[in-house]
Amino acid sequence: MNLIQNPALIEQLAASYALGTLRGGARRRFEALARNHAEVRAQALIWQGRMASVAELQPQAAPSEVVWKRIENLVKTEQEAKAMQAARVAARPEPGGWWSSLNLWRGLSSMGVGVAAVALMAGVNLNSINARLGGEVEDLTARLSATPEIQYVAVLADDKAAASMLVTFDPKNNRLTLKRVGGFQEQADKSLQLWALPQAGAPRSLGVMGGDAVMRLTAARSDVNVPALAISLEPKGGVPAGNGPTGPVLFKGALIRTAL
């Protein structure tokens, strides 16, 4: 039988093909025919379009409100990851440029906020979200470790999770660098003091900041081998050595090791 001369049969096959019930050898023969004959191909496309309308005719139902929240969070996370990537590309060329790229840091810290927001949600799909975010953290860690002299990073944030201070540690030069990224500025009679928060025991002072945007302190690896850092507001010049913080803790954050 010559199929091509039987338009009704071609159309019936095209309909079964589009429906999905044409399977196995019959499906492969039909596909071969469609590749060789434009009129067969046209029928296949027409019926694919018609069958797609079956999906449009399904009855409506109301999803729970949490679905939109989940979508919104995922989209925001994705947008932030993109911004971070763009900032990294823009910042890479010049030495010093990487460091002064606020956007990278803002991206990093706002991603942290995103993680917190997602974690707060009573998400049904938390595992997959965690997997995604875990991937992004890994990615970020990999990128940071590509810049060899920076081994530890902390983003210190206030109680509203707004990033205010970045801290990096360069073990090669025993250098701890602090950079202000928020709008916070202490009064003239006060100083910000950086503390290492060990797993057990009292906070140890790592240094006192001046009013500058960037500050470099000398610190040994053992000084920063702690899970978290914090900044307290102290009288001008800071707390005398040997004492703990006396003022309120303004910012704190976990110390992330970027290279192992």
Binding site: Q60, A61, P63, V67, W68, V124, N125
Partner: peptide, 24 residues
């Protein structure tokens, strides 16, 4: 479009909770 599209998801996976994951 979510009511319509959720309807599609329910029809395919037949479980409302799964359909929400699919819609997402």
């Amino acid at each position: 479009t979510s009511p319509k599209l959720y309807g599609v998801a329910v029809r395919v996976v037949t479980n409302r909770e799964w359909a929400e994951d699919v819609l997402q």
